[in-house]
Amino acid sequence: MKKLLFVTAAAFTAFAAAGIAAADPVVGSNVDTNQLDNFFAAGNLGQTQYRTDITHPHSVFQNVRFGWRWNGIVGAEVGYAYLGRRKSTGPFSETSVNARAATLGLNAKYNVYDGFFVTAHGGYLRSQRTDTVTNYLTDGSSDHRSWNNGLYGGLGLGYDVTHNVSLALNYDNYRLQYNHPDDRFRDKVNVAAYSASIEYRF
Rank of each mutant, 00 (worst) to 15 (best):
S88D: 15
Y124V: 08
H144V: 02
S96M: 09
G105V: 03
D143A: 14
T95N: 13
G90S: 13
G115S: 06
R145P: 01
D139N: 14
F116I: 05
V97F: 04
V97G: 04
Y124L: 03
A101S: 09
R145L: 11
Y136Q: 01
A120E: 10
G115K: 03
T132V: 10
A120L: 10
S141I: 03
T103E: 14
T138V: 10
K109M: 13
Y136T: 02
R129H: 03
L137S: 13
T132I: 09
N107P: 04
G140E: 14
T95L: 13
G115P: 05
T89V: 06
T132L: 06
F116A: 06
S142L: 02
S93A: 04
Y136L: 01
D131P: 00
A102S: 06
T95Y: 07
V133K: 07
N135A: 10
S88N: 15
H144F: 13
A108Y: 07
L125S: 04
V97K: 02
G140F: 09
V118I: 15
F92N: 11
T132A: 02
F117I: 07
H144W: 08
T134Q: 01
G140R: 12
N107T: 14
K109S: 13
V133F: 12
D114M: 04
G115A: 00
V118Q: 06
F117V: 04
N98Q: 12
G115Y: 10
V112P: 02
N111A: 14
T89A: 08
Y113T: 03
T89M: 04
H144L: 05
D114Q: 14
L137R: 11
S146I: 05
T138H: 08
G105Y: 09
N135R: 07
R126S: 07
T130F: 02
T103N: 08
L137F: 09
V112K: 00
A101Y: 00
G123M: 01
D143H: 10
D139R: 11
A108I: 09
D131S: 10
G122Y: 06
V118W: 10
D139Y: 10
L125F: 05
T134S: 00
F116G: 10
S146C: 01
F116R: 09
H121S: 02
R129A: 06
Y113R: 01
V97E: 05
A102R: 03
G105Q: 01
F116N: 09
R100D: 15
T132E: 06
Q128Y: 06
G90T: 10
S96R: 13
S142V: 14
L104V: 14
D143C: 02
Y110R: 08
Y136I: 01
L104W: 11
S93N: 12
V133S: 05
T95S: 14
T103P: 08
G90V: 03
R126C: 00
V133N: 08
L104F: 15
V112T: 02
S93C: 01
Y113I: 04
R100L: 02
A101F: 07
